[in-house]
Design a protein around this nucleic acid. Structure first.
Lengths: 213, 213
DNA sequence: TAAATAAAGAACCGTACGGTACGGTACAAA
DNA sequence: TTTGTACCGTACCGTACGGTTCTTTATTTA
């Protein structure tokens, strides 16, 4: 059950035991509330009613614990699959809007913000495990989902673009803008920015102006 | 010369002495290279050939030092003013493109990335001095500049929009997309993404498709 | 030249935290 | 009942770092 960097793929695709998940959930709570410095081994042990020794047995060291937290949270986030294949233009657009709204909901959620803060704070350590983990298990997964959705739209002639990745980036930019960074810097979202559905709709409107047929 | 939180405006609008600026420059170097953990008082004193006592006399405590670093860097960044007023449509568009390119150059620069990392990493401490500092001295300044530029474009009937802030946010999203966050997470920019002029031009093209007359 | 100020540099203190060791407990298998 | 396993709780160690104090060495000012 050692979670030392598993050979070449240096992150963990492992199922945690329920007890471990409970502890990780507690760690997430500490992290959301107080940031990295609040997630000490002693503090987590006290807060989760477990022993430090168990933490070290399960996760190796503190870095392993942080990585496990990130992996655990990533493993929890599931985007809804693209559902039914036969849809008309309006339904597809609604789909895309729902996707954008879901994207915003994930990105602006407090746990996501906390984990991004954590990873960014650690990203200039030699190996940068957390940053890569978050990128490959978070951003890249979402990007793949988005590309599939967009390509479906292109295939059915609702959208026109050359590079699906580029189109997705534009959609991302239109929807997220600098809100994500501002949240990470500690600014609280405005009332307008908290209307995720509305923001998503506006973003998709603009996206269609650029890439709609 | 104490830099304790100056009354209500809790950041410093002060001119540093040349010696202090040299030390802050050195601190920036440490920060860029190794992140927050690399910026220790002893390390900075050794690296800048100054005494810890001087650091504490000048900046109060470590937090004051960090704030001074942020303030110092913000004070260094000057966006070129909006230059000549009498311009035709093409010149204005070129202006806007140049602004976008400059924005990207600043945001993607390694010192900016390092300072954003620092501020984000500290942003869940009770007061969150750094985050606010970076927002008010960085983002908000740039946003003000951008709004002025965009409103000039609207006034001359090159652009059409209701809310300048919202328009700027769209331009920001189109230009920056998620590259800033990916850089902060430790990903290195692709060759394409390093062509700031090109990226700016594409972004402005799309911006005009949305807000051009 | 004498007094005074500023700063370097080293030694030191306290503390917080990562990591380890160990004793005690609950529980399952034999 | 015994044995083994997993775990909790606590005490402990080493170290790194923030912050203070002191001595020495210029550099200024009178």
């Amino acid at each position: 059950m050692s979670l030392a960097p598993t050979s070449d793929t240096e992150f963990e695709d492992i199922a945690f035991t329920p007890r471990q998940e409970a502890v990780l959930e507690c760690a997430l709570g500490l992290l959301v509330e107080g940031g990295e410095k609040a997630l000490t081994t002693a503090g987590l042990a006290r807060n989760a009613n477990c022993s430090k020794e168990s933490l070290y047995k399960w996760f190796g060291d503190r870095d392993g614990l942080l990585a496990a937290v990130v992996a655990y949270q990533a493993h929890k986030v599931h985007f809804p699959p693209e559902s039914g294949a036969t849809t008309d233009a309006d339904a597809f657009r609604a789909h895309l809007t729902a996707f954008a709204a879901e994207l915003l909901a994930v990105l602006f959620g407090e746990t996501s913000v906390a984990l991004n803060r954590l990873s960014i704070g650690q990203s200039n350590r030699d190996d940068n495990r957390l940053g890569r983990l978050l990128l490959v298990r978070g951003k890249h997964m979402i990007s793949a989902k988005a590309r599939a959705l967009l390509e479906a739209g292109r295939h059915r002639n609702y959208l026109r673009f050359d590079d699906a990745e580029e189109a997705y980036q534009v959609l991302y930019g239109l929807a997220v803008r600098d809100v994500h960074v501002r949240l990470m810097l500690g600014e609280t979202a405005s009332a307008e920015e908290q209307d995720l559905e509305g923001q998503a709709k506006v973003a998709v409107d603009r996206f269609y102006k650029l890439f709609g047929v």
